[in-house]
Write a protein that binds this DNA or RNA. Structure first.
Lengths: 200, 200
DNA sequence: CGATAAAGTCGAATCCGGTCGACTTTATCG
DNA sequence: CGATAAAGTCGACCGGATTCGACTTTATCG
């Protein structure tokens, strides 16, 4: 038990913090939950939280991991792999959209932190990478079916589609569109543009 | 002068705040500039600032209005209107990119506030609208030249291109790409995908 | 004008994220 | 074991954004 015990305890405390976050963020929202609240709920002192997380945002990302963990990949597996690419993408993104906006604040903060983080940290990048990888698989499959141009790079393709999804999401957050249907049809329009090409 | 005098004075004070913001934000950055600094520079009390702006972020948006106002439209006018669309877009976005990231902090906050605002406020939407309108003009011209499919809606086209620009920008902020050249070539790849179409 | 409401101003107080440095617990090793 | 280092814990503190409530100025109208 030389060092293992210490590690084990750390893991437990860490979980306690995340667990407190899941509870309190869900119940009272992110902004309304103070670090001290989390500490108290986790049964530790305020500044001990900072031994586990560099900043509040980082706790938020851990919270999202916990809450959204399987969402994307699980959704991807549920989507019919033989459907036309646009249908797969649309279904995938719309599920993700509904999930992310189930709590308006969370989606907003998640996007902010992962796409435009304050400091370049591996965390945000890692989070994005999961999305891009999941998309990449779908695209590889679509290439194999001969549905899309095989010479295009998966990374840029994934990024492209993801940004279109983000556009639809931003439309929601800025108030351009308010209903899920409108978000869906807007997204479809954008995906179509990308697939069919904009040039004559 | 029943009510006009009051209004007039308010306008002057408001300008003083924004002017102080332009000065101090540029010189010391956003985070490093406190509300009190702004108030002092504007010759008013700290909390009076809140009569004019609901939050510090709002002052930032006003600052951007002041600072970036001409940039986008001026750039657009400088771009060769007869060049291929991709060149026009690329030049426009890259100028915008350099401008926005001249201070890393500014671009990040601007995007956060305008694209994923905390509350649906006309401010953010208005700011975006200017971009989309400017893009719309370029697109209309490209349609007239027969370079792009005329049946596509300008709004969605503008949004599409703007999101690709944002993708390049996000790549910079997340650390996927670090040099301006890489941002430029990534953006070009994405624009090409959109124009040529991804589907076979 | 003078009373009264409305709008504006301000410094003090509050709240909260994050740092500091003293203190406690655990690991290491002679 | 006992000394010492390393790691972990904590509450006090700090800075800065935002709110509060008392006070001052301006507008309104009989």
């Amino acid at each position: 038990m030389t060092n293992g015990k210490r590690q084990q305890k750390k893991e437990i405390t860490r979980r306690a913090i995340v667990s407190a976050a899941v509870d309190l963020f869900s119940r009272n929202g992110y902004e309304k939950t103070s670090i001290e609240d989390l500490a108290k709920a986790a049964g530790i002192g305020k500044s001990t939280v900072y031994t586990y997380f560099k900043a509040k945002e980082e706790i938020f990302l851990a919270f999202c991991d916990e809450e959204f963990e399987y969402s994307f990949t699980a959704l991807r597996d549920r989507v019919d792999a033989e459907a036309p690419l646009i249908e797969q993408l649309h279904a995938l993104f719309m599920s993700q959209y509904e999930f992310v906006t189930s709590n308006r604040e969370f989606g907003r903060i998640l996007i902010r932190e992962t796409l435009f983080p304050e400091t370049v940290t591996s965390l945000a990048k890692e989070s994005n990478q999961r999305y891009l990888d999941a998309l990449g698989e779908i695209l590889t499959h679509a290439k194999a079916r001969g549905e899309i141009r095989p010479e295009l790079d998966n990374f840029f393709l994934s990024a492209h589609f993801f940004m279109l999804y983000l556009g639809a999401l931003s439309g929601f957050y800025t108030g351009y569109v308010t209903t899920t249907e409108d978000v869906g049809s807007g997204l479809r329009t954008l995906l179509n543009q990308a697939l069919q090409g904009i040039a004559l």
